[in-house]
């Protein structure tokens, strides 16, 4: 299993644990503004990130020279996904409880980073989805 896949999957497992812990807090009615963070830790941090890691590992080769496409682009996917998600997890509840320009900027930055992670993943994987 390549290093990038191990990094994707282990990070996804950390988000999985964090999401479930947050679910416990939500069940105790700590803060309803954490619900969007809980959902995105699960479906983005855990499921989508796990899929990205496994796809990078197991999909058909791009070419003999670059079997998994451009590795740097996949590290870019990893970085933008996680920085974007962490920014969101911090700024979204704060913006909901005490809106400010700083939190607004962080949310816009988070939106751009998360979007870029998806674009980079699709760009690097599209050609690996091919008939035998």
């Amino acid at each position: 299993m390549p290093l990038l896949t191990r990094t994707f999957i282990k990070t996804a497992l950390v988000y999985f644990m964090l999401a479930l812990l947050l679910g416990i807090l939500l069940s105790l009615h700590v803060s309803n503004s954490l619900f969007p963070v809980y959902i995105h830790l699960l479906v983005f941090g855990w499921l989508t990130q796990l899929i990205f890691g496994v796809v990078y590992w197991m999909f058909p080769k791009y070419s003999n020279q670059l079997p998994r496409g451009r590795e740097a682009l996949s590290w870019f996917t990893y970085g933008t996904l996680n920085i974007g998600l962490i920014l969101r997890a911090i700024a979204e509840p704060l913006q909901a409880s005490q809106a400010s320009n700083l939190f607004g900027v962080l949310l816009v930055l988070s939106a751009i980073l998360q979007w870029l992670s998806g674009v980079a993943f699709v760009a690097n994987t599209w050609q690996r989805v091919k008939e035998k």
Partner: peptide
């Protein structure tokens, strides 16, 4: 490939919604 197209569209809409929360 269709799932990749939906990934792109879903991320785009999600990005717009999240940015709208910021500004």
């Amino acid at each position: 490939r269709c799932s990749f197209i939906y990934l792109f569209l879903g991320f785009t809409l999600g990005g717009i919604i999240l940015a709208n929360k910021g500004y």
